[in-house]
Nucleic acid binder design. Structure first.
Lengths: 122, 122
DNA sequence: CCGGATCCTGGCTGATACTG
DNA sequence: CAGTATCAGCCAGGATCCGG
């Protein structure tokens, strides 16, 4: 039970929890460049995502303090999402993640090439 | 449907998928310092985790190419896990993640302090 | 345009039991 | 010591419908 004490202490466990949302990373990435509206975000997503899901993800990130939701009282309504201070700090992670992701995609590509050339014909 | 084409192209989507495992980040973190045995890993985890779950997580990471499993034919058996090349490259992400995680924990702490001082007494 | 309420489903997780 | 097989439960994600 003593192990549970690490909750709220370990930065890695904390990070993991926040990144557990299926779209967290990508949303944080999209918001790097400035405020974006709800429907904009939905269109920018790499895969189709329902507004229900998007809404929930954004709400989570907002509750965790990473993003800020700003609502304009208009007809039609307009809502913009942007990064909070701590959200902006996440940029360094985004950058590292982007670079590594590209490296990994390269790695996978080479692995696949080997498969065609190599001994997978058993 | 055209959106689906981004699969296997976007580094962020790729990263997200790999980090989806509940313990991926922490495991990658633990292995930074060198090979570790199965039971060692289990003990080092911040929360209790069954060997079933740990086994599955490790297997996933191995299949994704991030870690290497080395088995020594002995009695009693000994298995060591270590980082692959692409796994080692993940270190920069780990570092960024660690720093941000600490920042975030600070941020949360301050937020909580405000709650006690501030207007939450209503 | 934005999003809540509800219901459903797949996948991950974890518990338990068994193997070399 | 280091797993695998199997089963059960939970919950994030998605579909659909409704509301401001």
């Amino acid at each position: 039970m003593a192990k549970k004490d690490l909750f709220g202490i370990c930065p890695y466990v904390t990070s993991q929890k926040i990144l557990s949302g299926k779209w967290s990373i990508y949303l944080l990435y999209l918001l790097q460049e400035g405020p974006v509206r709800f429907n904009e975000l939905q269109r920018m997503m790499p895969e189709d995502i329902t507004h229900t899901t998007l809404s929930r993800q954004l709400k989570n990130l907002e509750e965790e303090g990473l993003i800020i939701r700003r609502e304009y009282s208009q007809i039609p309504p307009k809502v913009e999402y942007s990064l909070s201070e701590i959200g902006k700090k996440f940029e360094s992670v985004i950058i590292a993640l982007g670079e590594w992701g590209n490296d990994y995609l390269e790695f996978v590509k080479h692995k696949d090439e080997k498969k065609y050339k190599g001994g997978e014909t058993a």
